[in-house]
Amino acid sequence: MERNDDAARTVFAQWLRDRLEERGYDLGVRGGGQTKFAEDSGIGRATISRMLRGTQGSTDTRTLELLATALRIPLVEVLVQAGVLTPNELAAVQAPNPGTRQLTPEEAADELGITDEHARRMFISMVRTLQQPPGADPDRATGS
């Protein structure tokens, strides 16, 4: 996504650094916090290092999902912080304008031209997750 320009990556890097330090990860030169978080989250240490330096903005939803799970933060918050969604886009997905016909996730995928089966399944699952009210069971959205 184009939203992950240098400024956005820097903001995301600081946000991530703050969340990790709040949870006790020592991100000092010899603190071992990056390695420990990599182990705890299942995200590669190099990826975490790049995100913390602001040299990689992550729009890979699987990585962001692992990040949200490890930090015990709602995925939607991570998606907004990472620049995948704007707050306005999130609000529109969660509470569409009354009186307008809401597209199904499948129709939205069609409209966006998402034809790759894997990408399509991920997109549909992500939309269903985002449509849930905060605190809802995420497994209900995916049918797991």
Rank of each mutant, 00 (worst) to 15 (best):
M1G: 07
M1C: 04
D5T: 11
D6I: 13
D6A: 15
A7V: 13
A8N: 08
R9I: 10
V11A: 15
Q14P: 00
Q14L: 10
L16E: 00
R17K: 15
R17P: 00
R17N: 09
L20E: 06
E22N: 12
R23F: 00
G24M: 12
Y25W: 11
D26I: 02
D26C: 09
V29L: 11
V29D: 04
G31F: 03
G31H: 05
G33C: 11
G33T: 02
G33Y: 09
G33W: 07
T35I: 05
T35H: 04
K36A: 15
F37A: 07
A38W: 04
A38R: 05
E39A: 14
S41K: 12
S41C: 04
G42M: 14
G42S: 12
I43R: 14
I43N: 13
I43L: 14
R45C: 12
A46C: 04
R50L: 15
L52H: 06
T55L: 02
Q56G: 01
G57N: 09
S58P: 02
S58I: 15
T61W: 09
R62D: 13
T63N: 13
L64S: 03
L64I: 10
L66Y: 14
L67V: 12
A68C: 09
A68D: 08
A68I: 11
R72A: 14
R72K: 15
I73G: 00
I73V: 15
L75P: 04
L75K: 08
V76L: 02
V78N: 06
V80D: 06
Q81T: 10
A82H: 03
A82N: 03
L85G: 02
T86I: 10
T86S: 09
P87Q: 07
N88K: 08
A91K: 12
A92I: 01
A92F: 00
A92P: 00
V93A: 09
V93K: 05
V93C: 02
A95C: 06
A95M: 10
A95R: 14
A95S: 13
P96F: 10
P98Y: 11
G99F: 10
T100C: 04
R101M: 08
R101V: 14
R101G: 00
L103V: 06
L103D: 06
T104S: 15
T104R: 09
P105Q: 02
P105C: 08
P105N: 09
E107M: 13
A108P: 03
G113M: 06
I114W: 03
T115Y: 02
T115N: 07
T115S: 05
T115G: 03
E117P: 12
R121A: 10
M122F: 01
M122I: 04
F123G: 08
F123W: 14
S125K: 07
S125F: 01
R128D: 03
R128V: 02
T129I: 11
Q132G: 06
P134S: 12
A136T: 11
D137E: 13
P138T: 07
D139F: 08
R140K: 13
A141P: 05
T142N: 12
T142Q: 07
T142K: 12
T142H: 09
